[in-house]
Design a protein around this nucleic acid. Structure first.
Lengths: 246, 246
DNA sequence: CGCAGTGTTCGTACGTTGTACGGTTTCCTT
DNA sequence: AAGGAAACCGTACAACGTACGAACACTGCG
């Protein structure tokens, strides 16, 4: 029952100056880039403090002068990825809210695909600077809409939810399934489908179950699927707007 | 360049009989339940092989006779959660595909909210038996629809994407933010918003930034938000169906 | 009834992880 | 030139997943 709370909450990384008084050998940016390179090429699990330090020819504990702990390192990485989702001002198309939101959505999805590990790490409770820019960009896209702030917020969040869900599903589907299902998984499905409890699923797959799976996998990862879904969602949103307006 | 592949791929857990010849002291079900209880009450990270074994008054390594590794334990847990998303036959309402899909979606979201850790663990490459039942249930809901198998598959996946994205966003938002933002995070936002680069965001929040955040947080977790978004999506889907039909 | 034999249990040990601690080095300031 | 703080990092520890193989107990056979 002594002191419960840890004595120093300390500020989060974005509120702390980067060490700089006596010129240090590294920067946060450098460290984040090293970690990012490892995650992209060897997978997120390969990112360990030791591994990152090694990449920079530094001692492991050296990293702890730029970052309080591994979570902060990850936040640096996430911030970098979110930065990539931003559309440079000059590339932003002119057009309706719908066209702009669409452009933003496509870019986001594309970025997430390049850094699949990142999706697992987003966390609203630990915001990163670039997520503010990202949100701002979405808000700006629907600035011309004549709806309440709450509705605007909800609209942006809704599209976000879809992008996020799609990208995460896609990312998890792609991993390991670099062409073809493992025999183990195929056998599992075949066994499960032997029972008469999945008639609709069977009908969907057709007679040749294994071929059916290839077909389903391709459908799932089909290039156009994201856009088609997005357009349906936007269609529904727009319809809702008109109802309110009248 | 010797033997590359590990010699025994072994079958995945669902294809292996539960140990049973000389009656063992535990069951997979029991083990999964113990793990689930830990995850729900202490968080997913508290689930370690040692901890689960301890809960069962067993030696740590004993678990490895029911399960090949920790991943398999997790799959048992996931399977249990997916099981909870299934709607018992007698509770299934009668009605249009839209009403049924809606019912399914609501139940899924509710279940995910009870087991937030689970969302981070779903993985299409490691299917669990109950995910087949879940998919079958969705397919059955749109059985009466006169569209191609591919379109049916896409429809179900689309709704899935939304549910998943929403639930995950929600889960991550809720964690730790059990009432109110930490002063650290508030300060971060205030500092970021000092710059003139986020005009739309500022307008959204209003003059009192801190109050604005409370407002936004409540909006984000608003009870009705999921349903409103779902209905917009379904609206868009339905509109698309009619276009095709005519 | 007793004795294999094997299905089940689990103690020990190893390698890997994040990071606390405290000493050493290096450079800037005065 | 000297002092001191900033930067660096070697060592050590606790927690993790799990390989290995010994110990145990039950079952079926004789």
């Amino acid at each position: 029952m002594a002191t419960e709370k840890p004595p120093e909450p300390e500020k989060m990384i974005w509120l702390r100056e980067e060490p700089s008084a006596r010129r240090p050998s590294h920067t946060r940016r450098e460290i984040a880039e090293a970690a990012l390179a490892i995650a992209d090429s060897e997978g997120f699990d390969a990112v360990s403090m030791r591994r990152v330090a090694q990449e920079l020819d530094a001692g492991t504990m050296t990293l702890y002068h730029y970052v309080r702990n591994k979570d902060e390192l990850i936040m640096l990485m996430v911030n970098a990825v979110v930065g990539e989702t931003l559309i440079p001002e000059e590339e932003l198309i002119e057009g309706s809210w719908r066209e702009q939101i669409r452009q933003i959505a496509l870019r986001r999805r594309e970025t997430y695909r390049r850094h699949r590990w990142a999706l697992e790490r987003f966390d609203y409770n630990q915001p990163v600077p670039n997520s503010l820019y990202s949100f701002e960009q979405s808000l700006r896209a629907c600035a011309s809409l004549d709806i309440s702030p709450a509705e605007k917020f909800e609209l942006v969040s809704l599209v976000d939810d879809y992008i996020f869900g799609y990208a995460l599903h896609e990312a998890r589907e792609i991993v390991e399934q670099q062409r073809g299902w493992t025999p183990e998984v195929v056998e599992f499905y075949e066994r499960q489908l032997e029972s008469e409890e999945h008639p609709e699923f069977r009908r969907l797959l057709g007679d040749d179950i294994e071929a059916g799976f290839v077909w389903a996998g391709e459908l799932f990862l089909d290039e156009g699927r994201f856009e088609r879904g997005l357009d349906r969602l936007l269609e529904g949103i727009e319809a809702g707007l008109e109802d309110d307006g009248r």
